[in-house]
Design a protein around this nucleic acid. Structure first.
Lengths: 208, 208
DNA sequence: GTCTATATCCAGATAGAC
DNA sequence: GTCTATCTGGATATAGAC
């Protein structure tokens, strides 16, 4: 019942509503009702509806940074020297991508924030760039460097590592977007994902 | 200046605004201003803001059907007997996908409608299903059957045609979505697309 | 911190003159 | 078909009691 709890619940309920209907379609009164208070009380915690939206982004950035540190340790410097790929066999790719997808789908904050970004991506060039960077470019670049390293070490058949990254990553992104709008697809999506990874490995595994 | 012209201009201006900001964020007055009339005059052409939205969908369905008849002649019955693939060499795939992407990006009605769908996809299960069906499933199924036929005819290396379709189609969809939010990416996207098709052909071309 | 009451604004939509 | 004037409802946000 303390301040922090209500303040946090406002963020969570607002994100839940924003991610379904978009910022404009959600009223402050709806957010307040979801929290269990009246709309005017909400203004004791945030000075405006926009401030709630902004706070969601700040919190998401913190979570993203923490997650990046934990799961994607080498995301930004994957291509420095190749040393960080020691011990990463091609067979590990399956586990890695499955873990990433499951987390992206099941973490409420992450999946809701992604849907919110999907709904607001055309608002400003900054949001558009953030979307592409976070949900495409970084993942793509990471895999490109990963494949480049695996090819160099002879664990994958030689080929254009960037094109390989597109082939590998894109189906995952598309399946994620399908599950975002149709959660009932999840089981089917995981099967498609499995077949996709199997096919990818069959094509590229066993270099030299 | 006749009725039909104004009525059509309302649809086009409304679609342009909806596709940028979403249905809720656009006011009837904004639409009217874009057309060059006052808001009340607009109600002589459509009985409500929602009616404009619905009319956009009806018109898009007509365009989609016409386009499907012209460009994707065999989309819905591609797998019937394999006969319709006569004369389709693997090399034709590049031209086909490039034509599809260019059309999807440059046709104002098609690209704006796709952005509108992106913004409204979470509204109802029907819109979600329509989005997946139109922008993923149909394209995917078409290519799956196409590859199945090409493999049977020995023009592509034998493999899982569905997984091949995911690998082939997904990068195209992701690049499209990037260009939708960041049009300045188009040149880069076409280059990525070219490399993607080249890589796909290098991997799968030459069956038997 | 929460409430009721209210101020202010703006949106969708209608009435009726021209 | 277009306009001005207006109705009505709902939204953000504030004031002030408890």
């Amino acid at each position: 019942m303390e301040t922090g709890s209500t303040k946090q619940r406002i963020l969570e309920e607002a994100l839940g509503l924003f991610s379904l209907k978009g910022f404009d379609a959600v009223s402050v009164e709806q957010i307040a009702a979801a929290v269990g208070i009246k709309a005017p009380s909400l203004y004791k915690h945030y000075k405006s509806k926009q401030a709630i939206f902004d706070a969601i982004f700040v919190q998401m950035q913190h979570r993203y940074d923490a997650q990046a540190a934990a799961m994607e340790l080498h995301l930004s410097n994957a291509g420095c020297d190749g040393e960080q790929f020691a011990g990463i066999a091609a067979a590990d790719l399956t586990r890695r991508v499955q873990a990433l997808v499951r987390f992206s789908l099941h973490d409420e904050f992450v999946s809701r924030f992604r849907r919110l970004m999907t709904l607001e991506q055309f608002r400003t060039p900054e949001l558009a760039a953030l979307y592409t960077q976070r949900y495409v470019t970084r993942i793509l670049s990471y895999h490109e460097e990963l494949f480049r390293g695996l090819i160099a070490r002879g664990e994958l058949r030689g080929a254009d590592p960037r094109a390989m990254a597109w082939q590998y990553v894109s189906p995952v992104l598309v399946l994620l977007s399908i599950c975002d709008r149709q959660p009932e697809w999840e089981d089917a999506a995981m099967k498609e994902l499995e077949a996709h990874v199997r096919q990818f490995q069959a094509v590229y595994e066993g270099g030299k």
